[in-house]
Simulated scan of single mutants.
Amino acid sequence: MKDLQEILAIALDVGLGAANILRSYYHETAKNSNLDVQYKHNEPVTVADIAVSQYILESLQAALGNEDFAYISEETYQSQLGGDTPEWVWIIDPLDGTRDFIEKTGDYAIHIALVNKTRPILAVVAVPEAEKLYYATKGGGTFVKTRDASISLKVSSNKQVEDLTLVVSRSHRNERLNYLLQHLPCQNQKAVGSVGCKIATIVEQQADVYISLSGKSAPKDWDIAAPELILTEAGGKFTHFDGTPLQYNTGDINQWGGLLASTSQHHEVLCQEAERALAQFTHS
Rank of each mutant, 00 (worst) to 15 (best):
A261R: 06
L57K: 01
L260F: 08
I199V: 13
A70L: 07
F281M: 01
Y179N: 09
N42Q: 04
A261T: 05
D84F: 13
I224D: 10
K216G: 06
V52A: 15
L22D: 03
D68L: 15
L213S: 02
I50P: 01
D242I: 00
A62Q: 07
L16I: 03
H27K: 10
I110V: 10
R23Q: 00
L12H: 01
I121T: 15
G83D: 02
P227A: 12
E103S: 10
Q78P: 03
I92E: 11
H41M: 10
V124A: 08
L95S: 02
E103V: 01
I92R: 06
V45K: 06
A191G: 12
D36A: 14
L184D: 06
L81H: 11
P185T: 01
Y71Q: 12
V127Q: 01
G97R: 01
R276E: 09
A113L: 11
E75I: 03
E74R: 10
E268Q: 15
E228F: 10
T98S: 11
I21L: 03
G82H: 04
L177M: 08
K138P: 00
E43V: 11
L153K: 07
I50F: 02
L278D: 12
E275D: 15
Y134C: 15
K138N: 13
K145N: 02
Y55Q: 05
E103L: 15
I121S: 14
T165C: 14
V209Y: 05
N42E: 14
S53P: 09
W256V: 13
V161Q: 06
T244K: 12
I202T: 06
I230M: 03
Q78Y: 13
A130V: 13
Q205L: 09
T244P: 14
S212E: 03
K198D: 06
A19Y: 14
Q206K: 15
D96C: 07
P44N: 07
C186M: 05
S169F: 05
L12M: 10
H283D: 11
K159N: 04
V161M: 00
D3P: 00
A279T: 14
P128L: 03
E6A: 09
Y248F: 07
S156I: 04
E204S: 09
I92N: 01
L184K: 06
T244Y: 13
S156E: 10
Q265C: 01
W88K: 08
I91V: 12
S214L: 02
Q80M: 13
E75H: 05
